[in-house]
Design a protein around this nucleic acid. Structure first.
Length: 511
RNA sequence: GGCGGCGUAGCUCAGCGGUAGAGCAGGGGAAUCAUAAUCCCUUGGUCGGCGGUUCAAAUCCGUCCGCCGCUACCA
């Protein structure tokens, strides 16, 4: 088994401020990246920004700034958002960087060399005023037959020279690829959509534009810039040093997981593998699409004014509760609804009451009744063994679940142990044992401490800061916090710091 | 229109051939170590309608009703 792991988010298009959807993808990828590191993998976690295209060029012109200055500002905002969300990326690629343009040019040359690129003409309804093509279904037709763009500009049928990628030639090879790699697209519903899309027949893909300049130049044809597909997708290999296949990072290719939102599955599961195979490179091992969030039951939109700013959310509730909520509330891969009420419920019930309080009630008894020293392990009773074995099973269970991106199930699995822990405390009643059987009380508290250690260890990728503090309070040295480290018991007598609450309950301010 | 999916307790969903499940919400009780946090018990469903296969169907097949996704060049 390969011990290296390459995971990516999409590069985010800089046509607005980052919102909860961007944060969601990045946080989910972060959890997986952190999990793999915890499990001893050599991880490369890539994110970044997509900065070319006509929309960006127009936005820059509209605000009277140079496109590069415009994207510098927006890209920095995305990067700051990732950092604010605790996203532990190893590299942040920007499509305006020289290394990316070099990779794109080399990649383009490979496609040309394979015979899959030809010069043709892209046809469509074009509005001269907007300098933009429109789809048929976007147009309105006046009684006199004039067609108008959504902007009100008149359109005419225009042919523009464009390079094409011979995607039509790749249909059978793509189907064979999906067939040989059934896990390459997830969840299964997305796989089905991709399969039916490819089966219905593929058209050649326009991969250059000559109507605007803000893009990567096409080699040997200064009239063209690369259109989005090639430019954007190549980021995944430009960050690995392509075309230098002897560079230090190239060993990370092919990507183990491209994580993305459902609307860009096709680009990643159809176009990208075809490009890569054409270029003589391996296609990604897995592409997984998650769903979209609504807000309080409504679609998120600028006009409704309900777009969630992830940083505002973190300012109010804290980073870890937000990360937890996003991954716990909804089966990963499905759509979900974001509501204050639901977030507060998860925070108060699951984080504060279930987990935070289990830690607090355990550690406060250790502090008060045992002088703050971790008791030694005693011979386990049947009840002890039941709880400990549940906790010990967590790493293997989560490995399997996280490998198939079932993040919500991973959290549910951990919470079964947390609930079992609370039930165990009540059954054993160490506060009563304090008077009748202090040794047994110590043994019970040790069982609880070990259970909490396992829980906190596997939850570190989800809530790095909070679980770090919990492990501090449990006396677990930083170097003993990996999955491998969990196998080595802490010595009895370890002095624990004074416990303090990790997840305060959230009280809604009275209006 | 074509292809695919879904419809199970008040809510969110799991189960996918063998006497209906979880979490939350509701009701009752216990405990008091703990962030008044916990634990135990419990109410509640003709598993969208109809028909079929089977000794046996949420579970397979057909059909109808209702929702949803995909059906390519904004990313």
């Amino acid at each position: 088994m390969s011990r290296r792991f390459f995971i990516t988010t999409p590069i985010y298009y800089v046509n607005g401020a980052p919102h909860i959807g961007h944060a969601y993808t990045s946080i989910a990828a972060d959890v997986m990246a952190r999990w793999k590191r915890l499990d001893g993998f050599d991880v490369f976690f890539l994110t970044g920004t997509d900065e070319h295209g006509q929309k960006v060029e127009q936005a820059a012109v509209a605000t009277g700034v140079d496109p590069q200055a415009h994207v510098d500002r927006l890209s920095a905002d995305f990067r700051a958002m990732a950092e604010a969300m605790g996203v532990s990326f190893d590299d942040f690629i920007r499509t305006t960087e020289a290394r990316h343009k070099r990779a794109c040019a080399a990649f383009w040359d490979r496609l040309v060399a394979s015979g899959d690129v030809y010069l043709g003409a892209y046809e469509g309804w074009y509005a001269l005023r907007d300098e933009s093509f429109y789809n048929d279904d976007e147009l309105t037709t006046l009684p006199d037959g004039t067609r108008l763009a959504p902007t009100g500009a008149p359109v005419s049928w225009v042919k523009e020279p464009s390079y094409f990628f011979r995607l039509s030639a790749w249909q059978d090879r793509l189907l064979a690829f999906y067939d040989a790699n059934p896990e390459v697209i997830g969840p299964p519903s997305r796989r089905n959509e991709v399969l039916s899309f490819v089966r219905q027949g593929l058209k050649d893909l326009s991969i250059s534009r000559s109507g605007f300049r803000w893009g990567v130049p096409v080699p040997n044809d200064p009239d063209h810039v690369m259109y989005v597909w090639v430019d954007a997708l190549v980021n995944y290999i430009s960050a690995l040093g392509f075309p230098d296949e002897n560079g230090p990072l190239w060993r990370f290719w092919p990507a183990d997981l491209h994580l993305l939102a459902k609307e860009i599955v096709r680009f990643h599961a159809v176009f990208w593998p075809a490009f890569l195979m054409s270029a003589g490179l391996e296609p990604p091992r897995r592409v997984f699409a998650h769903g979209w969030w609504t807000v309080e039951g409504e679609k998120m939109s600028k006009s409704v004014g309900n777009v969630i700013d992830p940083r505002a959310l973190v300012a109010e509730f804290g980073l870890d509760p937000v990360r937890y909520f996003l991954l716990r509330e909804v089966p990963f891969g499905s759509d979900g609804d974001f509501s204050r009420r639901a977030l507060i419920g998860r925070l108060n019930v699951e984080l504060a009451n279930d987990l935070g309080n289990l830690s607090q009630r355990t550690l406060s008894q250790v502090a008060r009744n045992l002088g703050g020293r971790l008791p030694a392990i005693a011979a386990p009773t049947e009840d002890d063994e039941a709880l400990l074995s549940l906790a010990a099973a967590l790493p293997d269970q989560l490995r399997e679940l996280i490998d198939r991106q079932a993040l919500h199930e991973a959290l549910e699995t951990v919470w079964k142990v947390v609930r079992a822990g609370n039930a165990y405390v009540d059954r054993q009643a160490p506060w009563a044992l304090r008077k009748t059987d202090p040794d047994r009380m110590a043994a019970v508290l040790r069982v609880l401490a070990d259970t909490l250690r396992a829980v906190a260890t596997v939850l570190q990728p989800f809530m790095p800061d909070s679980m770090g503090r919990m492990l501090d309070q449990l006396g677990v040295p930083v170097e003993a916090r990996s999955l491998a480290g969990l196998a080595v018991p802490l010595p009895g007598g370890t002095v624990l710091p004074a416990p303090s609450g990790i997840f305060p309950r959230f009280a809604e301010q009275a209006a």
